[in-house]
Design a protein around this nucleic acid. Structure first.
Lengths: 98, 98
DNA sequence: ATAACGATTTGATAACTATCGAATTAATTG
DNA sequence: CAATTAATTCGATAGTTATCAAATCGTTAT
């Protein structure tokens, strides 16, 4: 991964609310065994105290950085993390770098 | 580490030039076996094409996020990475998380 | 001591960002 | 169909940031 793309990803994670949003999505995603539970945005909105328009904006940023992808299900929006990408980023940061 | 601190670190890494600066410091630091070679800012300035004032600003940001520490040696500035912190960040990002 | 050099500070500017309220769209429920 | 609900879009605003040029500070070399 080149530096520019990495910087873009870090930028997407650089806002506290957006980072928390990302972590919530990741956590929901992780606890989805075996029932493959899905992460609805509505639930997240109630747990962060920022408005829906801002959440919408943050989600767009996360998608734009390729950190998550979304899918519409009726009137709901489902988010899921891009596991490969975040592992890659994690490795870049690790000095041992393996 | 709490979300706010993590976000602050990501912010410090969110600018392409600053990230490259950080990587250069880390890399110089890593290749310091066994001669404990030191990372002088001057060398970095010539390899990135932004001015000295901007570099100075970026270094302050990295120090402020605790990602690096600096030490004055005569008229030169030496930078070294905070290895523990970046390992911690790397682990937070890893979904496997350990 | 004077010049040269590395680095920092200051002040300015253009660009970007997080957030909100209001309006809107789209889907579901009564 | 009407009302409700989830989400998005729009427009505005206050705050932040990256960068530069010019000036300054400290250290070293001539």
């Amino acid at each position: 991964m080149d530096t520019k793309k990495a910087a873009k990803i870090f930028k997407a994670l650089s806002n506290p609310n957006r980072l928390e949003l990302y972590f919530k999505i990741a956590q929901m995603h992780e606890s989805s065994f075996p029932a493959d539970s899905e992460c609805f945005v509505t639930d997240i909105i109630s747990s962060l105290n920022i408005g829906a328009p801002t959440i919408s904006h943050h989600i767009k940023e996360l998608v734009n950085a390729d950190l998550i992808s979304t899918e519409k299900k009726g009137k709901f929006l489902i988010c899921k993390v891009n596991e490969e990408l975040i592992e890659e980023v994690s490795k870049i940061l690790s000095l041992k770098q393996q």
